[in-house]
């Protein structure tokens, strides 16, 4: 299985091919970590970073923060809070939907209602 760091490195290097601002050093600077630490993350020498850093990395690299968090083995704190407030309801909902196809899950998502205007 591809580790988190490899995905980060692959993504960053692809962007670096077209934009020199995506060097290891500049990305680390914008994300607010040391270049040496980002290098270790990319090599898989250290565990994935904190939730906040993972989210900043995702946004910097144009990726979905939830997807990056999942690859890092984490669940965002706002999702945890949602489940904590109504644990039985959401746990049951998630288990029931675990094998459902994407379009079926989208059908239970709350939509923005279009009215009469």
């Amino acid at each position: 299985m591809t580790h988190f760091g490899a995905v980060v490195r692959n993504r960053r290097e692809r962007m670096h091919l077209e934009d020199r601002r995506f060097s290891l050093r500049q990305v680390a600077q914008r994300v607010g970590i040391e270049p040496a630490y980002l290098s270790k993350i990319e090599r898989g020498d250290v565990a994935p970073p904190s939730e906040a850093t993972t989210i900043r990395l995702a946004r910097e690299l144009g990726e979905d923060p939830d997807v990056f968090l999942a690859m890092a083995g984490k669940v965002s704190s706002d999702l945890q809070e949602i489940v904590r407030k109504r644990p039985r309801l959401f746990a049951d909902l998630i288990r029931q939907l675990k094998a459902a196809p994407d379009d079926a899950i989208l059908r239970v998502v709350r939509e923005v209602r279009d009215g009469d205007w």
Partner: peptide, 9 residues
């Protein structure tokens, strides 16, 4: 009521 009718955000 006229706000509700529009829906949306």
């Amino acid at each position: 009521e006229n706000w509700q009718r529009r829906g949306g955000v």
